[in-house]
């Protein structure tokens, strides 16, 4: 709370400094201070959560690392700012963070009125519901009269209102500011239903006292394209953040992995050579304001998109989320990178 007010006031008062930096080249700022300041979730297993020794890991955290790797060639040059749903936008607006990689839904309002730019959707999500098995609910349409736990200040809260209104169902919202508070309230039985993005539900179920007592209902009631966000007015930085994602996707498409990236540099395929910056007179990275090694550095640091996905939220993680919409375009999904050329 204090931080939100402070951020708002600081953004009002000192925006002279903050926004000056924002409208100018964020890349130069980042290089000057020597690290990327990355806004992440306060704790969502699989996406961004600190471990026992305080090191952050997760899907979104890997994006922060990938950006640092692209800029510095060193994935450790990141500082994380854990942000609640409510704190995230003022923090980005005021320049407290350089990029927001915090499972944030891209919407027109956020893209325009809030002054942000979202681009590469790094995770196609949708809002779902979780209930206790003992309630014997099979569909979200049976939820009339339920108390619903939801995090405030999210698109989730708005979709929830719209869905229940459209289906003429009654409900009683129980809202909290922090994800941890929502979890605790749901676990304690303060509400019957927990709603958030489906990926989040799978992640949160693991943290409940008895995960097996809960089921995620089949309905998906919204489109939630999660994307990293930057401030408007700095196209170069926007391009870098976008192309970090495209590089991850492209690497998966080419079959470039963390393990074989050095080997792939010798590939005969000119597309791969160009992508990895080994083509003669390559300007593939310098045009972005980075080095030609940028894609190599990203893959060395975190692997390709498929590896990032599997390690944090997919088959190789406790969450075991299917690739689904997040498979590559040529495997029935929506993940598609523009040509690196």
């Amino acid at each position: 709370m204090a931080r939100t007010i402070l951020t708002a006031l600081v953004s009002a008062a000192v925006m002279g400094v903050g926004s000056y930096a924002a409208s100018a080249a964020t890349l130069d700022d980042v290089k000057a201070k020597g690290f990327v300041q990355c806004g992440v979730n306060t704790g969502l297993a699989g996406f961004a959560a600190p471990n026992a020794s305080g090191d952050w890991s997760g899907f979104d955290v890997d994006y922060c690392k990938a950006i640092a790797a692209a800029v510095f060639g060193d994935a450790t040059k990141v500082k994380y700012t854990p942000l609640s749903a409510k704190e995230r936008f003022p923090a980005l607006q005021s320049g407290e963070v350089d990029v927001l990689a915090r499972n944030t839904t891209w919407s027109i309002n956020r893209d325009t009125a809030l002054g942000f730019n979202f681009r590469p959707v790094n995770y196609y999500d949708g809002q779902g519901f979780m209930v206790r098995k003992e309630l014997d609910v099979k569909s979200a349409l049976e939820l009339s009269g339920a108390a619903v736990c939801v995090q405030t200040g999210t698109t989730t809260e708005l979709n929830l209102a719209d869905y229940f209104k459209a289906n003429n169902l009654q409900y009683n919202p129980v809202v909290f500011e922090k994800l941890e508070e929502v979890n605790a309230a749901y676990d304690a039985g303060r509400c019957d239903v927990y709603t958030t993005d489906q990926s989040g539900l799978y992640s949160l179920r693991l943290t409940l006292s008895k995960p097996d007592d809960h089921i995620v209902l089949p309905e998906i009631i919204s489109k939630e394209p999660l994307a990293p966000a930057v401030r408007q007015g700095d196209d170069q930085w926007f391009d870098i953040v976008s192309w970090v994602h495209y590089a991850l996707v492209q690497a998966e498409e080419f079959g470039v992995t963390q393990a074989n990236v050095e080997e792939m540099k010798k590939s005969a395929n000119p597309d791969v050579q160009r992508f990895l910056g080994v083509e003669a007179d390559s300007k593939i990275g310098t045009d972005l304001g980075l080095t030609n090694e940028w894609a190599v550095n990203i893959v060395k640091a975190v692997g390709n998109y498929g590896e990032v996905f599997d390690r944090n939220i997919g088959a190789g993680s406790p969450l075991k989320i299917e690739r689904g919409l997040n498979a590559l375009w040529n495997k029935g999904g929506l993940q598609y990178a523009p040509p690196v050329r």
Binding site: T4, A8, N109, T152
Partner: peptide
């Protein structure tokens, strides 16, 4: 902190939905 819909809680939600922090 406990999700009681007082002025600050509701205002916070609005702040987030509209981005009108100031």
């Amino acid at each position: 902190a406990i999700g009681y819909a007082d002025l600050v809680a509701v205002g916070g939600t609005i702040l987030n939905q509209t981005g009108q922090s100031i």
